[in-house]
């Protein structure tokens, strides 16, 4: 009996080894371990054996059975793996073909700049305010110390709708509106971005519509050096820490003293080039200490309160920062133009 079992085992293992496919292995399994297989037969014939031989033969038969089952399992795994490898080989793709396009839009360049400016000033404690684009003559001019017949109205040729209504020529009316709303009750620290309009024929450097960001800070004891400090901080963050700023006296009816701010030219680093008209400086914004009449008209006592205001043009800044050659690009929305600025 023993010999017979050992022989069966050797025979079966040999066949497993020779199996070429999973089907072959299955055949071996059915042939040796199946219900009609020789091992089952041996176990079934146990009754005919002497009682002392039964446990010995039984144990041996189980061992043989386990050995064959093991061998079959191992062979199966090897064959399955080989089959999978064969299949994967057929699944190879060209990884250099282009990916499936993703449709994603992006923000307008001016919006990006305005939001960046907003975030910088929010970081310095400013709030963001808005105001109407159709303004009254009062808020656009009178409340900013530009009475009718004032020579400064020459500088702001405007789109009037009626005698008293016009498209705002600057975002400065929001100064007067915000202060007027608070009526001298608390400090004001705000910026106001928005669209503004002037009677200009559209060409490469002029647009009848453009954007502006106005800033205003009114509190007790605001100093001109604070204006310089705040604008310096803004300029270094926005344009880069290596840029220098310079303030020059200027004139705006709603500020006194008034300033214009230049930053050092990035191209020539202050030495003078065609970009900065040989001066080494590029004009970036205007501002000054809020004129006492403006404070007074808005309900702030100029003996108690002082403040500074400033205004800048994102269109102009974009032109300077990115070298955009035509202001009309901002409003024709040429896809090829807009997409350039969707990159990080």
């Amino acid at each position: 009996m023993k010999e017979k079992l050992t022989a069966l085992q050797n025979e079966a293992l040999e066949q497993v080894e020779q199996a070429q496919s999973l089907a072959d292995v299955e055949k071996v399994r059915v042939a040796y371990l199946g219900k009609k297989g020789p091992i089952t037969e041996v176990l079934r014939g146990m009754g005919k054996l002497a009682p002392e031989e039964r446990p010995v033969i039984g144990e041996l038969a189980n061992k043989v059975r386990a050995a064959i089952a093991d061998a079959i399992e191992t062979e199966k795994r090897i064959l399955e793996e080989a089959a999978l490898n064969e299949q994967l080989k057929t699944e190879t793709i060209d990884v250099t073909l282009p990916g499936r396009p993703v449709q994603v839009g992006g923000p307008h360049l001016l919006t990006q700049l305005i939001e960046e400016i907003e975030d910088l000033f929010i970081g310095m404690g400013f709030e963001v305010r808005e105001g109407p684009e159709v303004e009254t003559d009062y808020y656009n001019f009178e409340a900013l110390n530009i009475p009718k017949d004032h020579p400064a109205r020459d500088m702001q040729d405007s789109f009037y709708i009626t005698e008293e209504l016009l498209l705002r020529t600057h975002t400065s009316p929001v100064q007067a509106r915000t202060m007027g709303e608070y009526q001298g009750s608390k400090p004001v620290k705000m910026i106001c971005p928005g669209k503004v309009y002037r009677r200009d024929s559209d060409d490469a450097t002029h647009s009848h519509q453009f954007t502006q960001v106005e800033g205003l800070y009114v509190d007790k004891n605001v100093r001109m050096s604070d204006l310089k400090g705040v604008l310096n901080q803004f300029a270094k963050q926005f344009f880069g820490p290596e840029r220098e700023i310079r303030l020059r006296p200027s004139f705006f009816p709603f500020t006194e003293p008034s300033v214009e701010m230049d930053i050092s030219c990035k191209v020539c680093k202050g030495k003078g080039c065609s970009v900065c008209k040989q001066t080494g400086w590029i004009e970036i914004l205007g501002g000054g200490m809020v004129h006492p009449k403006v404070l007074e008209m808005a309900g702030y006592d100029p003996e108690v309160y002082s403040g500074f205001a400033f205004g800048m043009g994102p269109d102009r800044i974009a032109i300077l920062k990115y070298g955009v050659d035509d202001i009309r690009h901002f409003y024709t929305n040429d896809r090829r133009f807009l997409e350039q600025y969707h990159e990080a």
Partner: peptide
């Protein structure tokens, strides 16, 4: 000379800014 004015930061009420 505007160049000779110092750089200072406002000393008044300091409140955080945020978008509405």
């Amino acid at each position: 000379g505007y160049d000779h004015l110092p750089y200072t930061l406002p000393e008044g009420s300091q409140q955080a800014g945020q978008l509405t």
